Computed example of a mutant assay.
Amino acid sequence: MKHWLIGLLAVLLCFGTGCGTAANEQIQEEVTKTAEEIRLETIEKKIHSMSVEEKIGQLLMADFRSNLDGSGMTVLRQDVADSIQGYHLGGVILFAENLDTLEQTQILIQEMQNAAKTPLFIGIDEEGGLVSRLKKSNIPHQTMLSPGEMKDPKEAEAAGKSIGETLYSMGVNVDFAPVADINTNPDNPVIGIRSYSDNPEEVAGMVCAFIKGLQNEGISATVKHFPGHGDTKADSHKAEVFVTHDLERLKAIEFVPFSKAIEAGVAFVMVGHIKTPNATTDGLPATLSSQTIALLRDDLKYNGVVITDAMNMKAITEYYSVGESVVMSVLAGVDMVLMPGDIDEAYQSLLEATKEGRITAQRLDQSLHRILGLKYDKGLL
């Protein structure tokens, strides 16, 4: 009995000194683990509750820019609400045609969210400067320099913060910015001053600063256009494009801003329709290339959401059907397909490929974990 009391006293003394600190750390560790377990359980439960059709829809982000008479769609039409619900869309991207006033945009976005069973990513291209959807609207916002006109990371961070504040007030939760391309080709017809610099380290610093400013305001940032659109001679909106550098050069120059952005915790990486014949052997645009996606996943260690550039661009549509390109991108490892030319054809093609076993349940769930994981982290679930 005496030995038992001595032992109990020793335990109590231990908790009152260093052993107590260790025990508290262990308890804290268990609490932290429990939070992560709750996260994973919530995501798993959501995935298991979803039909194949609902899972497929989460891989699609559509645009609804105009009404049938050509006017901008600033008020949600019933057929658009039906599409959001019927195709179980993962997201919607807005354009200048959708924006008028702050109140109008808030109502439009809220009604889109109301139509969705699973909360939507609401995206926009708001780089500031040359590429701005806000500048044609009546939404109060700060006018920005284009990225190439900025000289200091503090400017880029301030721009990200200001844009983030405005987008958050609207109800937008994803910005397809910043541009991580390096302006190494002065004859490039599409990047130019959308890029921060012709120096990879300078671009990386500015990109990470913008991401910090934007994501601190609750908006998911997107670095684009992997593997790098800076040294192309054509515009992928209008034609196929090539970057002819070998893999060693890409890793030393073009990949640097993307790598730093991934280390900084960027939410999305957008892959461009760029062919790299001296770095990959499949002859495919990056958006359809498993070799390119593997570089992103394996070499750059990125496990977040990979999204395509708009799939209605001629670099894709001149060579592939809507259904073919969408299925190829998912098979390559892409998580979300942006703006397929025909949402019904895209959805039906993915559904057919899944039922045939070309897209496996495991492949679908890989992307669902990333998509729903980000939605959970951003408070959307």
Rank of each mutant, 00 (worst) to 15 (best):
L8C: 11
G16P: 03
T17Y: 12
G18V: 12
G18Y: 14
I27R: 14
I27N: 09
E30T: 15
T34Y: 13
T34E: 12
T34G: 03
E37K: 07
E37H: 05
I43N: 06
K45G: 15
S49W: 02
S49D: 08
G57E: 13
G57Y: 13
L59S: 12
M61R: 08
A62G: 10
V75D: 11
D79T: 08
V80C: 10
Y87E: 08
L89Q: 14
G90P: 12
G91S: 14
G91K: 13
I93K: 04
E97L: 09
E97D: 13
Q104M: 09
Q104H: 13
I107Y: 09
I107F: 07
I109R: 08
K117Q: 15
P119W: 03
D125N: 01
G129D: 02
R133C: 04
L134V: 08
K135L: 04
Q142F: 03
T143L: 10
T143G: 03
M144T: 00
G148E: 10
E149M: 15
P153F: 11
P153R: 13
E157Y: 13
A159V: 09
I163Y: 06
D175S: 15
F176E: 05
D181R: 00
I182H: 06
N183E: 14
P186W: 11
N188P: 09
N188I: 04
I193T: 12
R194I: 07
R194T: 10
S195R: 05
D198I: 02
D198H: 15
V203W: 04
G205I: 10
M206P: 12
A209Y: 02
F210Y: 15
F210W: 13
F210R: 07
I211S: 03
K212F: 03
G213N: 09
G213K: 09
N216V: 07
E217Q: 15
I219P: 11
I219G: 05
S220Y: 06
S220C: 14
K224T: 01
K224G: 02
P227Q: 08
G228I: 02
K233P: 00
A234D: 04
T244S: 08
E248K: 08
L250M: 09
A252Y: 02
E254Y: 01
V256W: 01
S259T: 02
K260F: 00
I262A: 00
E263C: 00
F268M: 02
F268A: 00
V269Q: 00
G272V: 06
K275Q: 13
T276L: 12
P277E: 06
A279M: 05
A279N: 05
D282T: 06
D282F: 06
A286Y: 06
T287G: 03
L288A: 10
T292W: 08
L296I: 06
K301F: 10
V305R: 01
I307C: 07
I307Q: 02
M311A: 10
N312G: 07
K314T: 14
E318Y: 14
E318G: 03
S321L: 08
V322A: 12
V322E: 12
V326C: 12
L331R: 10
V334D: 07
M336G: 05
V337L: 14
P340F: 10
D344E: 15
D344N: 13
L351H: 03
E352I: 08
E356K: 11
G357W: 05
G357C: 07
T360P: 06
Q362C: 00
R363K: 09
S367F: 04
L368I: 01
L374N: 00
L374S: 00
Y376M: 04
D377N: 05
K378D: 01
L381T: 05
